[in-house]
Nucleic acid binder design. Sequence first.
DNA 1: CGCTCCCTTGAATGAGTTCAAGGCGCGTGG
DNA 2: CCACGCGCCTTGAACTCATTCAAGGGAGCG
Lengths: 244, 244
Amino acid sequence: MEPHVHKISCLDCRLADLCLPYGLKREEISQLTIIVKSKRPIGLDEYLYKQGEQSQSLFAVKSGSFRTFICDADGSEQTIGFYLPGELMGLDSLHNGFFSCYVVALETSTVCELPLSRLNELAVKIPGLQAQLMRIVGKEIASDHDKIVLGHRSAQEKMASFLLMLSKRYHALGFSGTEFNLTMRRRDIANFLGLTIETVSRQLTDLTKNGIITVKQRGVHINKLDLLKAIVEPCLSNQSYGVK
Amino acid sequence: MEPHVHKISCLDCRLADLCLPYGLKREEISQLTIIVKSKRPIGLDEYLYKQGEQSQSLFAVKSGSFRTFICDADGSEQTIGFYLPGELMGLDSLHNGFFSCYVVALETSTVCELPLSRLNELAVKIPGLQAQLMRIVGKEIASDHDKIVLGHRSAQEKMASFLLMLSKRYHALGFSGTEFNLTMRRRDIANFLGLTIETVSRQLTDLTKNGIITVKQRGVHINKLDLLKAIVEPCLSNQSYGVK
DNA sequence: CGCTCCCTTGAATGAGTTCAAGGCGCGTGG
DNA sequence: CCACGCGCCTTGAACTCATTCAAGGGAGCG
């Protein structure tokens, strides 16, 4: 028996305002819903797509989380980032139609598939959709710039930034911004931040000793958000100009 | 007397194939030309736009070169990248309508201004323009990913990558890929790569001692392109899948 | 229970920074 | 035309932060 894939309309999706439908009229969202393909859940360590594959679609995270990384010539991974619900994956493929990254699930996760051909058709008809797509793309670029800057910072600043980045994103999703689970392994964090596992571990220990956070396995509790922000402060660009 | 600004049509521009007009029909390029505003030249160290300013336009480099950077809370600069002719600046502002970077000229340079309102109108009418805009945006994202990865590399690899990146881009512009001038200062290179000026200097010296390059002031000659590539090799993602 | 994977901790090493000094090229003004 | 001064770049030596190497603890699972 075929597993039944329950299709949720973008109209009912609680992530709509963080995702493509933001700013669209009900009627327009209905049209968007039509082109969205639901996929079966992606399991832990399962690939959503691979570097070099031809891209037919973009993907929005419906639930769970993903890690995206590039593979070097010698086969070693370079984690580029993490995706949480509401975020759009596959934008890198707009360049030439091929994915330039791997995307792998950090837990059992679900996605909405957006076939590019149909998305482009619709974007021409719905200017608001085009606009939102551009906003999302611009956000991706701005966030990549933050990552570039972060790469030049100390281990402590990297670690603090990483935690704050997650805190903000979980908060925006309506979850707690001070208590959440790290769905990625330490080595993923280390690889993402350009540090070793040992350094990540030591940084977490230091933050714990200072009473700023409490860590229990993958679980993190931020006790002193202000102190965490104070660590990151000097490397923050003043870029909160009217952010949505 | 008003300085006369000579307007060159995109039809005649030798950069057209590297810029927005790529893939458009002659008729469509004419329409694009109409919305392009020529601006007076930008002088050395002059700003094209600043972080926090409202964005009305994107800008294409017509001649010269630019540096883009973010300012920290404490006022220190973080160079994000460099722009050469044919490249599009201001994509980061698509996020929320405000520039998240500064852009400053590294030499006397000229740009084409593309008012966003008119560009968006036109993109709806010309699907090919929309497509090319998306390709450019995707390229920006892919190149940002390369920069993130580069941030985790050794000083030698960073330096070699930087030179190769310039080599490729100059070559694509029809200039020599093995002999060119660095239009940026050492401190800009250092800041971009997340190194100190001293380290950049030492790396250049090392490459010179190995006979790989010859440096005279801002002038660089790559003697052994293959050796330079060999240094970068291990950090290259296999991402030349059908690149234009 | 014993394996494996994940994470932590400690000590030695090293790449890149910091600090300090000096050289080179270029514009300015005598 | 030369002298001076300033910015830009290079070089050397000491230091430091993160890495590397090595060992051990703890959770989850067959």
